[in-house]
Nucleic acid binder design. Structure first.
Length: 270
DNA sequence: TGACAGGTACATG
DNA sequence: CATGTACCTGTC
């Protein structure tokens, strides 16, 4: 267990920002997360965060995962003072950070996310992990499941996958798992490509259109100019940016603003 | 009861 | 290239 004081970071907001589906509240101010096959608990007490890991694990894994080296304060300062909507969004969800999630898992979880709601997305992801992931044990006897590898899913058929309640997305996931497993699309190369090329490459996968590709670019490949436009963001753009969103002005961090706007639209009382 | 949920594949003009 | 439509499934 280690503790840190972290600015521009709110684990509750991140958990509710819809970018990650295995970060869950387990008690008041307390969260669990499974990523890269590792289980972590995060607790907020007063102004400090407690992580159930060693300093070394924090430095090598979680600091990177939570994008701790990026100065979000500086980014928020760059937002136009006259941009009232974004300023409001920041005052509500300014503790959000863009996570650096595992690529394969992000591809699959965002294929699942289409025409879906967050509780059911999480349910589907957990079922995938329970059925086809690896079972791991913690020192206290508690168990958890890792996210299944591409090769594991690629070997399944639709019937074997049917326990996971994926609906029509099951077919997409099998095809995508096969494509990745056979290296028709290479995870390694995706990581080396720039934003535009990785987006194009991702869209070769069945079940990955513009929106899912943008999410993967932003939440896994950390192309922070990616700007996923879903029903919520479309509504925000229509209502508050009728003359167009100032992408040019916000070049280099537009994706972060997308997350603030998304969180604000989903959580504000209206 | 039917619409809706962080869309996409597939079929048409 | 732009537009239209069906689609699993749980929840309200």
């Amino acid at each position: 267990m280690i503790n840190k004081i972290i600015t521009d970071f709110d684990i509750q907001q991140i958990a509710d920002s819809g970018q990650c589906f295995r970060l869950n509240q387990i008690a008041s101010g307390k969260f669990s997360l499974i990523a890269s096959g590792i289980y972590l608990e995060i607790e907020k007490k007063d102004h400090e965060y407690y992580f159930t890991c060693s300093d070394e694990e924090y430095d090598t894994i979680w600091s990177f995962y939570f994008d701790m080296d990026t100065d979000y304060h500086e980014i928020k300062e760059k937002v136009d003072k006259e941009d009232t909507y974004m300023q409001n969004a920041i005052s509500h969800g300014g503790g959000i950070r863009i996570l650096r999630q595992e690529l394969w898992e992000t591809i699959i979880t965002f294929i699942i996310s289409q025409q879906n709601n967050i509780p059911r997305i999480k349910k589907c992801v957990e079922l995938l992990c329970q059925n086809f992931g690896e079972k791991r044990y913690l020192s206290n006897g508690q168990t958890y499941f890792t996210f299944p590898d591409p090769e594991v899913l690629a070997d399944l058929n639709l019937e074997e996958l049917s326990n996971c309640n994926l609906g029509y997305r099951g077919r997409y996931i099998l095809q995508t798992a096969k494509a990745i497993s056979q290296q028709d699309v290479s995870l390694r190369m995706l990581k080396e490509m720039d934003y535009e090329n990785s987006k194009k490459e991702l869209m070769k996968l069945c079940g990955v259109g513009i929106k899912v590709a943008e999410c993967v670019c932003l939440f896994a490949l950390h192309h922070i100019d990616a700007f996923p436009i879903d029903t919520h963001i479309q509504k925000v753009l229509d209502n508050y940016y009728p003359n167009g969103f100032p992408f040019q002005r916000y070049l280099g961090f537009a994706g972060i603003l997308q997350q603030y706007a998304f969180y604000y639209d989903v959580h504000k009382i209206s």
